[in-house]
Design a protein around this nucleic acid. Structure first.
Lengths: 343, 343
DNA sequence: TTGTACGCGTTATCAC
DNA sequence: GTGATAACGCGTACAA
């Protein structure tokens, strides 16, 4: 009943009268054994109830098959979806994931990275924003970042610029006279800044009445509502009588803004069109389904892991040829038209 | 520049003219060295740029400090919040987490568990529902489950029964003549079944007009809306003129139901009170903030890891005293009153 | 307080 | 096709 000691290759070897080497080969290169002997070993594994130990394997061959992930939080649906998709690639590539939540704490994230390195991770996926990419690049380990400052490391990002243009142009096409973009002040180095730039470039090129309203959103829903309420007042003051196309930086904010309007007017007024960003569930589940710019999270996740795996495999070759320049992949967003832009 | 070989205790030992043992002690029992010598070693580590290797340590002492997690998905906010809270306990207990997404695939989950065991995890947290607890108990490794069938293993669950009573009694207190609970058909072995039982027991004891409407909800929002629309019709037929208290099995469904009413009547009719379950963001971010029964996810997560750590620590003692009976912790829910029950 | 010698379970190298 | 032996890097009796 009680099985004190772990069964090892030695035990199997004794039991089958082979050597440890042959047992190892059974696992890593079975074709080099005769079918008979494979059979014998397979039976022995069964008899002795052998359980493999991948820790010993890491020590021996240096391949942990671990990927580290540092993600800011799972509060936003964007991140939880992304994590889901990343974890799901286990079925494709076989890499296991050690996950840490960053929480905007730069020093904590450094500790996490050290811990990950101590466990011999082969690669690192970073979604948090705190540690500069230059420092990350110094880690001497394959790295891919997602939707963050990425000057010195490989990355996969949504084409935020195109997203900004898509949002603005849909609002314009549907007859808006004034375009308003509401966003938090954003570091131009972040990919998300592209949304603002795309919006502005579109408006300027088309010579449209427009404005960017900056609000320093916190994650508190009540504060968001308060700030959006201020923004609403500002818009109604400046653009009375005009059809207003409002492009918000996230679906959460778009939903909050929509609720504000509904509670004030009982319905979405005819002179307001709304667009969110992310295509998170809230956009579909809002009182009035909200048009939005959807990020292809499944594609981004796959491309990120794929790009990382590529680098990790390269490293295992006898004569590795590391990348000379960081690779930056751009994934197109998808415009999703729902009711808040149909007037 | 290039650092071919990893620095090991041997290198440090040579450099400092100590033995490997002393270096090891510097890390695991520094007080046993003189302060001077600690200093010397600390400097050597710095000089040689030593990086610890915890894989070797696992092999040597058997303590991986890994906990495995199998979670059904991160689509529901409940799960992503739970995962966040679990991962956050790293700061308290120091255990690292290997995470797999279950996706309702029983055989896949068995593969995940084997993989986790191969990496010498010290404990396992299960949130998915597929593998029977009896099978889990056979794994001979500390296990804690959260909100699932748990007959043969330790678990932490919300007091669903109390939640059902709280919901029903709030609706009753606020003058509802008919209480309706909408839920999916639920296995009585699952903790979530308690919500139905609590609801029913309350209604029966208070002799109230009531009904449970079962709808086999899929995760598709449109289908949910359709099914809720049917339920609405059923209620309006049976309980016309009565004040109806509707208790839905989740906030997502409560929000869908609320939107249905708003779009039909332009506002929440006076003869409808609504309650959700979970206190997920959608309940606060709905057009009309929805009253709900909140699960204390932070407490549940902490208690789960804590219960697991307890078992893991016990195992490491020279004379371990394993639990004779699985421990089941019950966490009280919190009633959250918002606008949908204030009439 | 410090050192010696061996074990942890697997893989890699070189033989045959 | 198979085997002996030395790594991999750290922990731990036991000894001094």
């Amino acid at each position: 009943m009680e099985q004190k000691k772990n069964i090892t290759f030695s035990d199997i070897a004794k039991y089958t009268h082979f050597s440890k080497t042959t047992i190892s080969r059974y696992f890593n290169n079975p074709d080099s054994l005769t079918l008979e002997n494979q059979e014998i070993i397979a039976n022995a594994l069964e008899e002795l109830n052998y359980k493999e130990n991948k820790v010993a394997r890491i020590l021996a061959n240096g391949k942990s098959e671990f990927i580290g992930i540092i993600i800011p939080n799972l509060f936003y649906h964007y991140y939880s979806k992304m994590l889901t998709q990343i974890l799901s690639t286990y079925e494709i590539f076989g890499y296991k994931f050690l996950v840490f939540i960053g929480n905007e704490d730069e020093d904590a994230e450094r500790r996490y990275i050290n811990e990950l390195l101590a466990y011999k991770i082969e690669g690192l996926i970073i979604l948090s924003h705190t540690i500069p990419s230059q420092e990350l690049a110094g880690l001497q380990i394959p790295i891919v970042t997602i939707e963050r400052e990425d000057q010195y490391v490989c990355s996969v990002n949504t084409d935020n610029y195109m997203g900004g243009i898509q949002a603005a142009s849909l609002l314009a096409r549907n007859g808006c006279g004034a375009l308003i973009h509401i966003n938090a002040p954003t570091d131009p180095k972040r990919p998300a800044y592209g949304r603002i730039q795309g919006f502005l470039d579109f408006c300027r090129e088309k010579n449209m009445e427009h404005r960017v309203i900056y609000k320093d959103f916190q994650s508190n829903y009540n504060q968001i509502q308060q700030q959006l309420s201020d923004a609403l007042q500002e818009m109604e003051g400046s653009y009375a009588g005009m059809k207003k196309g409002v492009f918000l930086s996230s679906d959460t904010n778009a939903n909050a803004f929509l609720n504000l309007l509904i509670r004030k007017y009982g319905a979405l007024p005819d002179d307001f069109l709304l667009m969110g960003f992310d295509n998170s569930p809230i956009s579909a589940e809002a009182v009035i389904p909200i048009s939005t710019v959807g990020q292809q999270i499944d594609v981004i996740a796959y491309e990120a892991v794929s790009l990382l795996v590529q680098q990790m495999e390269e490293r295992k070759k006898r004569r590795p040829v590391p990348l000379t320049e960081p690779v930056h992949k751009i994934i197109a967003p998808i415009l999703i038209r729902r009711e808040t832009t149909e007037k």
